[in-house]
Write a protein that binds this DNA or RNA. Structure first.
Lengths: 139, 139
DNA sequence: TATTGTTATACTCTATAACTATA
DNA sequence: TATAGTTATAGAGTATAACAATA
């Protein structure tokens, strides 16, 4: 039926996912950011003051990688590292005003990139896809 | 509703795809192969004698990477590089008997890995997912 | 001139181990 | 003892440019 190997869905997921992040990376180039910066920025804004460890957990990114990503974002003035009130080891990542502005613009682009990627699907199908992917992610 | 950034479907695709290939890599470890070797082997078997350039095209892998993957597979005795009858530049990748045997075993594992990954979905939902992913891939 | 395979190279991503300061 | 952040490092994946042989 197909010329793809067994384990086909995994293969299709990997290819589509790869395309998605490449497209997003290209779209974010004007900001000097890559897709992982965007996810860190977005998660920080959504949760409001996560520790770096928590960020890594939420995003599935290794803590050592989070350090570098937050370094970049902080250097760009998009986030600040703030002390944790009770634990002097942990540092909370807070989005700056500039970070919020940039995030809004980047979010717009990310939405467009997704729309392009899913061009072949109807809106209902995109919702179905998202629902199925969330179920996989949760398992 | 969710704490994931816009561009969410792309993000979900990338995460699920990453999990899929990591799982497959782990499953293929006993063979000394990684997921990309598996896809090259499977595509070579399915099409029967593709050139390396064609393999790269079908799989979305850079030609220079195909060289290294075929090197590995050839060293392991799973494929042979054969001359193209009409064009002395191109080399056709043929699966050996041992390669076919290994492929069958690996395909079994790949199927199991997919099944595990999609554990949370019904069979009908998996088919829906596959159909949607193929539509994306084709676009 | 263009194309196939190849080599070299560089950059990103991922993962691990080890260190520090705190808990 | 254990945990958060950090640094260093190594391996895999991805991408580009350049070259030789051939078309």
């Amino acid at each position: 039926m197909s010329d793809l190997p067994s384990g086909e869905i995994g293969y299709l997921l990997a290819r589509a996912g790869g395309r998605a992040i490449r497209n997003l990376n290209r779209a974010l180039e004007p900001f000097g950011l890559r897709s992982r910066h965007y996810t860190v920025l977005a998660a920080s804004a959504a949760h409001g003051g996560l520790s770096q460890r928590e960020l890594g957990g939420v995003l599935g990114v290794d803590p050592s990688a989070v350090v570098a990503l937050v370094d970049d974002l902080e250097r760009a003035g998009l986030v600040r590292r703030e002390p944790h009130p009770d634990d002097r080891r942990t540092r909370l990542v807070a989005v700056t005003e500039q970070g919020a502005t940039t995030l809004a613009e980047a979010r717009e682009l990310a939405g467009q990139v997704d729309t392009e990627l899913l061009d072949a699907l109807t809106v209902a199908e995109r919702q179905t896809l998202e629902k199925l992917l969330r179920r996989i992610a949760a398992s």
